[in-house]
Write a protein that binds this DNA or RNA. Sequence first.
DNA 1: CGCGATATGTCAATAGTGCTGACGTACTTG
DNA 2: CAAGTACGTCAGCACTATTGACATATCGCG
Lengths: 178, 178
Amino acid sequence: MSGIKGGVNPLFLREEDLRQGIELLFFAYRDFTAEADAILADMGFGRAHHRVIYFVGRHPGISVSELLGILKITKQSLSRVLSHLVAEGLIVQHQGTRDRRQRLLHLTEQGQALERRLTECQRERVARAYRAAGASAVEGFRKVLGGLLDSPLPRPGPAATDGAPLAEPDPLTTRRSA
Amino acid sequence: MSGIKGGVNPLFLREEDLRQGIELLFFAYRDFTAEADAILADMGFGRAHHRVIYFVGRHPGISVSELLGILKITKQSLSRVLSHLVAEGLIVQHQGTRDRRQRLLHLTEQGQALERRLTECQRERVARAYRAAGASAVEGFRKVLGGLLDSPLPRPGPAATDGAPLAEPDPLTTRRSA
DNA sequence: CGCGATATGTCAATAGTGCTGACGTACTTG
DNA sequence: CAAGTACGTCAGCACTATTGACATATCGCG
């Protein structure tokens, strides 16, 4: 495989380099989620609960379908997790005013506390990695990860504020248009 | 949150930047595995089967415990998947010569074919992202991902060769010492 | 040889996550 | 109001992973 062109490929496209990337992704993602997973497990929750708490915290008042669009799971899968979180008092549902079919989601204080606790683990880890790698490495990290996506993440920067359910036309919710 | 220090943090350690990294990791990993997952699902396998096939292909003759060390799952979890793969004729087990308790694992031709097919999806995706981002971004990507690991991946280069079961002192198997 | 440690495999039970199919409710439109 | 669409839930199935308890086979050592 190596040396198809007779020499070293300057763009790291050799079999070995690509496999290293694949493996790095696997190990990094696993370690990245491990701490939060452990906290969740202690509370009878799983990783899916974290995702829901995370994105509801990120987008207060998000509707179930919008959340589905971000997570890209079926509504049935979300339903179980969401009901659980509501039953535990971490999330509250308010009927939408514009469309009363909607259940707009918000974290309770308890939910916010858990969100902070969980995300703190990951934020700390990312901060450590960023600090150790330096600013230009971070830029590269973002560029490559962005390139791995099915559909590129719209830039969060110059977002036009509108009166939509979500305060901002968020890149994450919008992304489901993939 | 932003502006704790009154200004922009040059090292991307602001709340927003860290959250963007967290989300990028989530979306990228999901999209990264999606294609292979679909192929596996068609064959009645899951992601766990891919991991086993991948690492057995990567380390022919690996023992069950070494594989457990890489994957960091319980032997009961591995057992189910491994038995399935053996039953389907994708993996063969040979009794170890040095230690006859060991079952050294190898891919069959069929197993190799599937490994290639699955990994091809991911390799292509990574290659595309690498190409689009450029060599220096790739370096940054690796640096940051490496920083996310619990224990740093020993460099593949100047590793001290020992007489370990695996022909090479592989960074991945060695890593389980975490 | 016999004993303890190691390597592997298996059974049973439990939990989390995701899926499809079948429904029910709420709203929109003709 | 009826038909269609949007939104959400319940039931049942499959995959992954866990813990705990055992069962073999083998190795190393005294």
